Amino acid sequence: MNYAYLLAAILCEVIATSALKAAEGFTRLGPSLVVVIGYGLAFYCLSLTLRTIPVGIAYALWSGIGIVLIALAGWILYRQPLDMPAVIGMALIVAGVLVINLFSRTAGR
């Protein structure tokens, strides 16, 4: 269940971060509310994961997966291109997340 909370935290953070651009410096109410509520839910869900998952592992997973999802959201929603170095860098991040999940004994299983 803790990984489900972590996934929820990541998804809320990705939604909130994606809405930042649409909020236009918090001048648009709807997207601004999405940002505030999304980050609030993200941090709440992240706090629930920390009951059993070490903070370093949880944050590494949150940030690694979040970076990739935000880059994909920017590419899809805002037509922000990704060049080859960006794709390679994100592939290395995904590889790091996989190493943590598959081989780390501190991943809180």
Rank of each mutant, 00 (worst) to 15 (best):
G108Y: 07
V34A: 05
V55G: 07
I100N: 14
V94I: 15
I37K: 04
L77Y: 06
I53L: 06
L102A: 12
P81I: 01
I100P: 11
L102D: 02
R109D: 14
L33S: 04
P31H: 08
A95V: 13
A19C: 07
Q80T: 02
W62F: 15
R51E: 13
A107F: 14
K21T: 10
L33A: 01
P85M: 11
D83K: 05
A91K: 02
A19E: 04
A19R: 03
C45M: 08
V68P: 05
I76C: 05
A73S: 09
P31Y: 09
L6M: 10
L82A: 03
P54R: 07
A16V: 00
P54D: 09
S63L: 04
A86W: 03
A9K: 03
V97N: 11
V68C: 09
A91F: 07
F43I: 03
E24N: 15
M84W: 13
I100S: 13
L7H: 06
R105G: 15
G40A: 06
L102K: 06
A91S: 15
A60Q: 11
I10N: 05
L102P: 07
G66S: 00
W62P: 08
R109W: 14
G64V: 08
V14H: 00
N2E: 10
L7Q: 09
I37R: 01
L11I: 14
E13W: 05
G38H: 01
I57P: 11
I67S: 06
F26P: 12
A16Y: 00
A60R: 12
S63A: 13
T52W: 01
I37E: 04
R28F: 11
V87H: 04
I100K: 14
V99R: 06
M90T: 00
L61D: 11
R28P: 10
G56L: 12
A42G: 01
I93G: 04
V94E: 05
A107H: 14
M90K: 06
L46A: 06
M84I: 12
F103L: 14
N101H: 13
L92Q: 03
A71F: 01
T52E: 09
